Structure formats: C-alpha cells, structure tokens
Simulated scan of single mutants.
Amino acid sequence: MSTLGEVASHIRSKNAGPFWLTIDVFLPDAASFEKVCAQLSTDEVARRLGAAPASVRRFEIADLAVIKFSLPRPAVQGSVADRDMHGASFALLIGDIELEAG
C-alpha cells in the first residue's frame, strides 16, 4: 500500500474564485496517472474534504498527468467563517488516501 501523497509528484490546492476551491494532483508519469485515476475515488475525496460528492467536479488531464478536483468553498473567501483565505491547506486532507500497490 502507498498513499496518494507518496505516489503524486505534488498535490496543491488554491482558490478558484471566492466561492470555489481547486485541488490538483500532479503525477510523475502516464503509468502513475492511469493507476491513480483507476483507484482514487471522487467520493473519498469529497468525504475527506467534508463536501457533498455531487458537488465535487473531477477533471482528468492525461496529457499533463493531472487530476483536478473543483468544489464549493466551505465558506466564502474572506468572510468571517473563512479559515483559509488562500485555500492552500485543503491539499493536505487528501494526501494520506491509501492506494493499492501495482
């Protein structure tokens, strides 16, 4: 078993406007990209981020070996309830998702 954070070259999250977040999972090569696409559940990502699965959009960009998730922010950027103005901490929440070897 390995984790998403161990397989990915980089995982980052950031604002996609004041109402949305985006999380990018960069994979080192096409083989890793295919493996992670097959194993990484959008429902598990949503659960880790505290989002409704139906609200999470997933984009698989094979030419770049990137999986992108976009979802509504839990609080509007800059509001009193916003605890991460830049959206940078959300990537940490999915890095320990376990993937099967092989």
Rank of each mutant, 00 (worst) to 15 (best):
R58V: 03
F90H: 03
E60D: 15
R47P: 00
V66L: 14
L49W: 09
A31N: 13
F90W: 12
L64C: 09
A88F: 14
V80G: 00
D29R: 11
H10E: 14
T22I: 07
A54F: 06
A30N: 05
A54W: 01
S13R: 03
E44V: 12
S89T: 11
I61V: 15
G78P: 07
R47N: 12
H10Q: 14
M85A: 12
R47T: 14
R83D: 11
W20Q: 09
A51S: 14
L49D: 08
E44D: 14
A16W: 02
A46G: 13
R58H: 01
I23A: 13
A31R: 14
P28T: 04
A65R: 08
F69I: 07
L64M: 14
A65E: 09
P18H: 01
S32K: 08
F19S: 10
K68R: 15
S79F: 02
T22Q: 13
F69R: 07
A16T: 02
G87F: 02
V45N: 10
D43H: 04
L71V: 09
S55R: 07
S13F: 06
F33G: 03
R47M: 07
H10N: 12
H86M: 12
S41P: 08
A54N: 13
V80F: 11
P18R: 03
V56I: 13
E34Y: 01
F69K: 05
R58N: 01
A38H: 06
L40D: 10
V66E: 08
L40A: 11
A46S: 15
A8C: 07
G87P: 03
I23P: 01
C37I: 02
I11Q: 08
P74V: 05
S89N: 11
D29T: 09
I67P: 08
V80A: 10
D24S: 13
A38F: 02
A30C: 00
S32F: 03
D24M: 00
S41C: 06
T42V: 10
V76M: 10
S13E: 07
A54R: 12
V56P: 05
F19W: 12
L49V: 10
Q77N: 03
F69M: 12
G78L: 04
V80M: 04
P18I: 09
Q77V: 05
R73N: 07
P28H: 04
D29C: 08
A30L: 10
A62Y: 04
P18Q: 04
A65T: 14
Q77S: 14
C37D: 09
P53C: 11
T22W: 03
P74D: 07
A51W: 03
F19C: 00
F33Q: 03
L71F: 15
I67Y: 06
D63N: 12
I23M: 15
L71H: 04
G50Y: 08
Q39R: 06
K68E: 15
Q39A: 14
A62K: 14
V36W: 10
R73P: 02
A88P: 00
A54H: 11
K68D: 13
L64N: 12
A52Q: 13
S41V: 05
L40C: 10
E44M: 05
I23S: 07
V66Y: 07
G17I: 10
G17K: 10
V56E: 07
A88R: 13
S55A: 15
Q39G: 09
V56L: 10
Q39M: 08
R73Y: 04
